[in-house]
Design a protein around this nucleic acid. Structure first.
Lengths: 219, 219
DNA sequence: TGTACATCAGTGAACGCGCGTTCACTGATGTAC
DNA sequence: TGTACATCAGTGAACGCGCGTTCACTGATGTAC
């Protein structure tokens, strides 16, 4: 029966409520946005562990107290950013339709996937690190963002197994999970390969080959 | 000309020097070892970020001050553990010799690799997380531990490309890096797949297939 | 168009917790004779 | 075998920094009439 206050910065019936119960208007929404952007910016150059509320506040020229109007803590701000990345990923699920007999289909998907990572490297990396450390909320965000891809890849494997193109000893789920791991990691750190003479295109091509060959089997 | 004190816990001419300059004897060495083991144990259930000097000290029934006799900080203790894991990995390089025409060769390597991870999951995970966050010393440890495998895999790819069994569009380095990413991640979290009905053997088999097919090419 | 009021937005300054780190000390072990 | 000394080992207690967090306050914006 009790009327719980809405969680910080959460929306309820399109009305955003700040931590002290005031409704957030246009100006407040903009400030909140700047806090989020500042958070994303700072994560490019420092790990989440070293990111202080004071840093974010200073970055937008505000007081630490202002931060708490919109977020319970730094983690909550990062969770919002990670959720936004999830939305940016969603459209890629379409690229997994079709029979993928052509290498080009795999290439399109890999390229698009890495493109989203290139746009949001810092936040996605932090999301994955936190997920791997066992933070349940980051884990969930990652899982739900990747689920369509894992499911899609696993389905391709099953189809190829029915055709006899892929060895039935493979676990479709393990295969899909393995390929996603490969894609995420290469997306996250392909820039570092540049120093070894491996460019983004090489990475995309290589990943596409591996994915295609694995889920579509041998000719 | 100045006689620098040896770094904490470091060996010089087989004589270990503690942080206050005293040489460390049998008893001290044992205490240091217990500190290391306690660190590894605690890392199983909590991320590095939450690991306090006090926690480690309490775990071995000692005072925080004792910890500082042997390590500069928590990170240094973890670095020692990570280096030890590197040594545990080293023998696997032998498994990469041979021509790998047989799937079984890949399977042996994958199985052994995952076995080492199973023995040292916590420390290796922490090593990788720190490396991905950009900590140079963890990065170096990871790189040098994995280098033989990356090099070996890349060499196999080149050989297969000369045979025409693998598409020359693939970058040997990117391919090897991608496969290592896949292996590390599956080694790190294959336990979680159990809940989806995918056992350790399924994971090994699946990884072995992908690795073999990728570096040895199509029949 | 202007004025008064309500509400949204932002902050300075302080409090306090938790942890890292140190130091002067006690206790344990080893060894010379 | 025993005693004295040197050195190794361990610690209680405290200090202080840095950050999270809050509160009472000022300022900005919107709106009713």
């Amino acid at each position: 029966m009790s009327e719980e206050p809405a969680p910080d910065g959460a929306e309820r019936n399109d009305v955003v409520i700040a931590s002290d119960g005031r409704t957030v208007g246009r100006r407040g929404t903009a400030t909140r946005r700047r806090m989020l952007d500042a958070t994303a910016t700072l994560l490019v150059s420092q790990p989440l562990r070293d990111l202080r509320v004071v840093d974010i506040a200073r970055e937008v020229g505000a007081s630490p107290a202002t931060f708490y109007q919109y977020f319970r803590d730094v983690e909550e701000a990062v969770l919002v950013l990670a959720a936004e990345c999830g939305e940016a990923m969603a459209p890629l699920a379409d690229l997994l339709r079709g029979d993928w007999a052509e290498l080009e289909a795999a290439r399109s998907f890999v390229d698009a996937f890495i493109a989203v990572w290139d746009q949001h490297t810092a936040v996605l990396r932090v999301r994955n690190l936190a997920a791997q450390e066992g933070e349940p909320r980051f884990r969930d965000l990652r899982r739900s963002a990747n689920r369509p891809f894992v499911d899609g890849l696993a389905e391709h494997v099953r189809a190829s197994q029915r055709n006899g193109r892929v060895d039935s000893a493979l676990s479709p789920i393990a295969t899909a999970a393995a390929l996603m791991s490969l894609l995420e990691r290469m997306a996250a750190f392909h820039v570092e390969l540049e120093s070894m003479g491996v460019g983004r295109d090489d990475v995309v091509t290589t990943c596409a080959h591996i994915v295609h060959q694995t889920i579509d089997g041998v000719g």
